[in-house]
């Protein structure tokens, strides 16, 4: 059973009773309110399973709370939380159980579900269709990336993190982050070009 985030008690001393310096995590309500959407979004895009994303989001904040004394402010709180989240996601995806349930789970996300969430306020019907097709294509391509490529890609293009921040969150050297990012982009670009070509061909035939 997962513990509710806000059931965590608020007190100013550690278990040993000694005084500890206050951290950004002391006001857990504010931290959760501010960073929960981001952590959940990243986990949802990584795991593609709503229940697992929800559980690991709660687990992320629980871990952050229990390890709040180790937060040294050498990176931003967002980076630290994302680091916890991606470690949890990595542990989760390495279990055989996850791989099995991913293939059969009713909670597994479909690319079209996500693509239908494209903001289409001022788009024509045709432009909307093209936009949804582009999003679905990237969503599917990202699923086929290696674990590291996917992590770096999502942190860069979903969370809009800078490459040094990604290096801090993943614990990879800068050059490795760049290498994975460039490979991921090369795959996305190839698939994007292929999909565009197919779409344009179909549009010409219809016309």
């Amino acid at each position: 059973m997962t513990m509710t985030l806000n059931e965590i008690p608020s007190f100013d001393t550690t278990n040993s009773g000694r005084e500890r310096t206050s951290t950004a995590l002391d006001d857990l309500d504010s931290v959760v309110e501010m960073y929960q959407p981001r952590v959940f979004r990243y986990l949802l895009a990584t795991l593609r399973d709503r229940d697992a994303a929800e559980t690991l989001t709660q687990e992320t904040f629980l871990r952050a709370w229990t390890a709040r004394d180790t937060f040294r402010s050498d990176c931003s709180l967002a980076t630290w939380l994302i680091r916890i989240a991606l470690n949890l996601a990595r542990d989760h995806t390495r279990t055989g159980r996850f791989r099995f349930w991913k293939s059969v789970s009713a909670n597994a996300l479909d690319a079209t579900d996500v693509a239908s969430s494209v903001p289409t306020h001022d788009l024509s019907a045709e432009a909307r269709l093209i936009a949804q097709q582009q999003v679905a294509n990237i969503w599917q391509t990202v699923d086929g990336l290696s674990e590291r490529q996917r992590t770096v890609f999502l942190l860069r293009f979903l969370e809009e993190m800078e490459i040094p921040e990604i290096a801090q969150a993943t614990g990879m050297p800068l050059s490795t982050v760049k290498s994975h990012l460039y490979r991921a982009l090369a795959i996305v670009r190839t698939e994007h070009g292929r999909a565009s070509q197919t779409f344009n061909q179909a549009a010409k035939e219809t016309a």
């Binding site: 959407p37 709503r50 990237i138």
Partner: peptide
């Protein structure tokens, strides 16, 4: 443009999922 759409669509979808699941909304102390 495609990458921006991917980000916007994923964010919108995740936000919608969070709204549908009230247990994820922070409970006041």
């Amino acid at each position: 443009q495609s990458l921006a759409l991917f980000r916007d669509a994923t964010s919108a979808y995740a936000d919608e999922q969070m709204r549908q699941r009230p247990q994820l909304v922070p409970v006041r102390r």
